[in-house]
Amino acid sequence: MRLRLVFSAALLAVATMLTGLVGTSAHAAPAGPGSSGSMDFGSSGNDAFGRAGTFLWQNPAGRYIVVLGAKQGTYGQTPAILNRRLSKAAALGRTHPFNRIIVSGGETWWLPVSEAQFMNVGLIQRGIPPHQMVNEGKSRSTVQNAAFTVKMLKRMGADGAVIVTNGFHMKRAIGNFRSAAKAQRARLTFVPAYA
């Protein structure tokens, strides 16, 4: 356990250092025309995220962005499908900074770090501050992602979440989240955000 904590702290430190050295990475938010680097607080009149953005804007304290994990490479490489999920979640998180992001994914292969912890690093590199993230780091499948995350959402008093995953995975993921909410008697609404 101690090794896992030290390793995850080291990962976060490296990510923070790299973000500071590199400045704007390939994953960072692109600056818009006339951008001064300020945050767009997701005004409902100009929301590029459609239904998901409007849903988040309606209740920032009670609605979360849930990004589902994917198996890391043997040496901790982030797969392309997870990069797309992280980029989508980060874009939503930057536009809606008062909605927290739950990263969901358990242990990865032989590494003493969860998918959620790797995802923390990816989101930091994309401009999301650590205080905006919540980890669910025990799940090993989409069914467990849903069950454990719904339990967290219920405990935090949420009324819904935007589920961020790839198109081929969305129908199953939303179905798993709805089933988990029903099983736990949680009144939650789930909205898709395709990566």
Results as ranks from 00 to 15, higher is better:
residue 4 R to G: 03
residue 4 R to L: 11
residue 5 L to F: 12
residue 6 V to L: 12
residue 7 F to R: 08
residue 8 S to K: 02
residue 8 S to F: 01
residue 9 A to W: 13
residue 9 A to K: 14
residue 10 A to N: 00
residue 11 L to Y: 00
residue 12 L to N: 08
residue 12 L to G: 06
residue 12 L to A: 10
residue 14 V to Y: 05
residue 16 T to D: 08
residue 17 M to E: 15
residue 17 M to F: 14
residue 18 L to C: 14
residue 21 L to D: 04
residue 23 G to F: 02
residue 26 A to H: 10
residue 29 A to K: 07
residue 30 P to C: 11
residue 30 P to G: 12
residue 32 G to I: 01
residue 33 P to M: 07
residue 34 G to S: 11
residue 34 G to C: 09
residue 35 S to H: 10
residue 36 S to L: 07
residue 36 S to Q: 06
residue 37 G to E: 04
residue 38 S to G: 01
residue 39 M to L: 10
residue 39 M to H: 05
residue 41 F to I: 15
residue 41 F to C: 15
residue 42 G to P: 02
residue 42 G to S: 12
residue 42 G to L: 04
residue 43 S to Y: 14
residue 43 S to W: 06
residue 43 S to T: 04
residue 43 S to M: 12
residue 44 S to N: 14
residue 44 S to T: 15
residue 45 G to T: 09
residue 45 G to R: 05
residue 46 N to H: 04
residue 46 N to F: 03
residue 47 D to L: 00
residue 48 A to F: 05
residue 50 G to V: 06
residue 51 R to Q: 10
residue 51 R to K: 09
residue 52 A to E: 08
residue 53 G to N: 03
residue 53 G to S: 05
residue 54 T to V: 13
residue 54 T to H: 14
residue 55 F to R: 07
residue 55 F to M: 10
residue 57 W to D: 14
residue 61 A to I: 12
residue 62 G to I: 02
residue 62 G to K: 11
residue 62 G to N: 14
residue 64 Y to T: 00
residue 66 V to W: 03
residue 66 V to T: 05
residue 66 V to K: 03
residue 67 V to A: 04
residue 69 G to W: 03
residue 71 K to V: 02
residue 72 Q to A: 09
residue 72 Q to W: 01
residue 74 T to A: 15
residue 74 T to W: 15
residue 75 Y to M: 12
residue 76 G to E: 14
residue 77 Q to Y: 13
residue 78 T to Q: 10
residue 78 T to P: 00
residue 78 T to H: 04
residue 79 P to M: 11
residue 79 P to R: 11
residue 80 A to L: 10
residue 80 A to E: 13
residue 80 A to Y: 13
residue 84 R to M: 08
residue 84 R to C: 04
residue 85 R to N: 03
residue 85 R to P: 02
residue 86 L to S: 07
residue 86 L to G: 00
residue 87 S to P: 02
residue 88 K to V: 00
residue 88 K to R: 09
residue 90 A to F: 03
residue 91 A to M: 06
residue 92 L to V: 08
residue 95 T to Y: 12
residue 98 F to V: 08
residue 98 F to C: 15
residue 101 I to D: 04
residue 102 I to V: 09
residue 102 I to E: 09
residue 103 V to Y: 00
residue 104 S to F: 11
residue 105 G to S: 09
residue 105 G to C: 07
residue 105 G to Y: 00
residue 110 W to C: 02
residue 111 L to G: 01
residue 111 L to K: 03
residue 112 P to K: 13
residue 112 P to Q: 12
residue 114 S to M: 12
residue 116 A to N: 09
residue 116 A to S: 11
residue 117 Q to P: 05
residue 118 F to G: 10
residue 119 M to N: 06
residue 119 M to C: 08
residue 120 N to T: 06
residue 120 N to D: 13
residue 121 V to L: 06
residue 124 I to P: 00
residue 124 I to M: 09
residue 125 Q to W: 00
residue 127 G to F: 00
residue 130 P to W: 06
residue 130 P to K: 05
residue 132 Q to D: 03
residue 132 Q to M: 02
residue 133 M to Q: 01
residue 134 V to N: 01
residue 134 V to T: 05
residue 134 V to W: 06
residue 135 N to E: 06
residue 135 N to L: 04
residue 136 E to P: 08
residue 136 E to G: 08
residue 137 G to N: 09
residue 139 S to Y: 07
residue 140 R to M: 07
residue 140 R to P: 08
residue 141 S to M: 09
residue 141 S to Q: 15
residue 143 V to R: 13
residue 143 V to P: 02
residue 143 V to L: 15
residue 145 N to W: 11
residue 146 A to C: 08
